[in-house]
Design a protein around this nucleic acid. Structure first.
Lengths: 155, 155
DNA sequence: TGTAAGGCTTCCCATCATGGGAAGGTCAAG
DNA sequence: CTTGACCTTCCCATGATGGGAAGCCTTACA
């Protein structure tokens, strides 16, 4: 199987397959005489494993650990569960952060006329004009962590 | 005011202040003879504006637009509100994606013994062993979009 | 058998926002 | 006058992915 076929069979782009190889996550079964990568069913299975793990939000580093556990027949399910629960906590923390942003933004947008006039509570808030109608909680009170939290949070 | 003082007064790191200058988001009031950047209250105000926008999850591109609107006295609040509502929708989409992941992961973790034995429904799922007890919905059924969604979603 | 299309290879670059660090100039306090 | 704390610019790294160029290989078709 060529890289293109392996890509089609796994749903992982050829570009990514090469990248995963580069970072030591997977290796082709071999190479043809003309240096083409050759894959078998096992490799495709690994690629699908990676893809599924990524779709559940695991980082490539976590995915690598999970992959090793998968291939280690003497693993304990506790080790796997630890990674999963840690990841769940991470996701929930990020969800909470974003929900804080949404809460604040909805409040501000609600207070904003959205008309032809220039007066805008959203800009007032950003400019540090102080609370619009009530508190400046949500993402506001933890702006330090929030700023950090917002980092890389964009698709 | 030096860059260090402006950083302290705004909460934006000196490194970032220089970067924002590089991408044209802000400029110092001037330079000293020895080439040090000099800032005034206005610049600090802009930096705080940027920081607040970032803490609400706006990208630097969106922040730039908001900044221009803030400085444009003939803006309409509708233009600002549009950006905010678009951003809210974006956040909510990403929140929903992550919630899907959490839902699936919690189900899998719940089904996993977390003990000394190697049997693990989490690995079974990743390996594509099919649904553990019920469906493979949540992040699973939209795995294509999910994979994309997971991208850059990590702090 | 020649050729054209498409696939493969490697290599470099871009993204987005941020931090780290080196090499060297400047300033203020002791 | 030295020392330490600043400042300057420049380069590199992150994480996961895509884009594209230059050049080789394979397959199908005339």
């Amino acid at each position: 199987m060529n890289i293109g076929e392996a890509s089609g069979a796994s749903g992982v782009s050829a570009k990514m397959i090469r990248y995963y190889e580069q970072i030591g996550l997977i290796a082709p079964k071999g190479r043809t005489e003309s240096n083409y990568r050759v894959y078998g069913e096992d490799e495709v299975h690994v690629l699908r494993f990676i893809k599924r793990a990524r779709s559940l939000g695991f980082s490539l580093e976590e995915t690598e650990t999970l992959l090793k556990l998968w291939q280690d027949k003497s693993r304990t399910s506790a080790a796997v569960k630890d990674i999963a629960t840690g990841h769940i906590a991470d996701l929930e923390r990020r969800i909470a952060e974003m929900q804080g942003m949404v809460k604040t933004l909805k409040h501000l947008a609600h207070c904003c006329g959205g008309d032809n006039r220039p007066d805008c509570p959203i800009l007032d808030d950003l400019a540090g004009a102080g609370p619009v109608a009530g508190e400046r909680s949500a993402a506001g009170s933890k702006s330090g962590a929030g700023a950090n939290a917002a980092r890389h949070a964009r698709t």
